[in-house]
Simulated scan of single mutants.
Amino acid sequence: MTDHWIVRLACAAAMMLASSLAGAAEGGATLQAGNDLGDRASLQRGAQLYMNYCSGCHALKYLRYSRMGQDLGLSEEEVMTNLNFTGVPIGEPVPVTLPKAQAEKWFGKMPPDLSLISRVRGSDWIYTYLKSFYLDPSRPLGWNNRLFPNASMPNPLWEMQGLQHAVHGKPESPGADAPVTGLTIEQPGNVSAAEYDQNVRDITNFLEYAGEPAALKRQKLGVWVILFLALLTFLAYLLKKEYWKDVH
């Protein structure tokens, strides 16, 4: 009897989960980033894009320039010339260049540090967020975000993406705001849609790396661990055969 109830509860939970996922998809679920930490070229491009478009407002206080250069295969000169725009020593973490007073004046508060954003939100969320900005005259800075409504920041990548507008559906009740049902590019940016998607994916990849730099080394060590376990299994098999060969 107990087993039947467990099965029923499991089925009900599965149905509820499927229903919630379907509802999320209808309401604009997150897109699949499809990034790859093993793609060093993507990480290098993502680091460059982040430093050029994001580091002015967002710090990476848990990632040092020296560690980034080491992990991404960049020399000290390349890091200091192409990625370090603040002038701090290479052994220091990535700071923010935006003064606190100006941040509070423009955004109402200091933009958050993004060192752990991928571990808090997930890579798919970051990828979708960077593709979900649209023009909204009602907002103080003229921008809104479908994934994160009423976000305080403008679209830092608008020149690449172009000017995106919201497609509104029918209000649920009289006087209510019309829901955003889609997004459309009305003025193309200076790169193609495919190139923009790749740029966003590169930034997402870099932020996932920044959230846990040790993940790169763990992946490299993982191959050797698997080989060691395979060798150990083979030796254990030989030992077992030797031990039991005289037992009938």
Rank of each mutant, 00 (worst) to 15 (best):
G46F: 00
L227G: 13
N205L: 13
K220A: 09
P89W: 09
L231M: 11
R201E: 02
A178C: 06
F206R: 01
S192D: 05
P179Q: 15
Q102K: 13
K241W: 04
Y50M: 04
Q102R: 09
V200W: 05
M51N: 00
P188H: 11
S75E: 06
N84M: 04
G27E: 12
E212C: 08
N52I: 06
L74I: 06
P111E: 12
E76H: 13
N144L: 01
A33C: 14
E78C: 05
R40L: 04
R146Q: 15
L17M: 15
T81G: 04
R64N: 10
K240V: 13
L116S: 03
Q102L: 07
P213G: 03
G211F: 01
Y50N: 01
A22Q: 06
A24P: 00
M110Q: 12
S42T: 02
Q48I: 14
W224L: 15
P171H: 05
P140T: 14
E77G: 15
A22L: 12
I126T: 00
L63D: 00
H58D: 00
L130I: 04
D39K: 03
G175V: 03
S66C: 07
T2Y: 05
V94G: 01
S192N: 10
R121T: 13
S118R: 03
H4D: 13
E208R: 07
W5M: 06
A29K: 12
K105Y: 07
S75R: 14
Q102G: 03
L114H: 01
S123D: 13
L232T: 12
E208F: 01
G211Q: 10
D246A: 06
S42R: 04
H58N: 01
G28H: 14
T97F: 02
Y129G: 00
P156W: 02
L231C: 09
A101K: 10
L130W: 07
L74F: 07
E26P: 00
D136Q: 05
G46N: 04
K131E: 02
A193D: 14
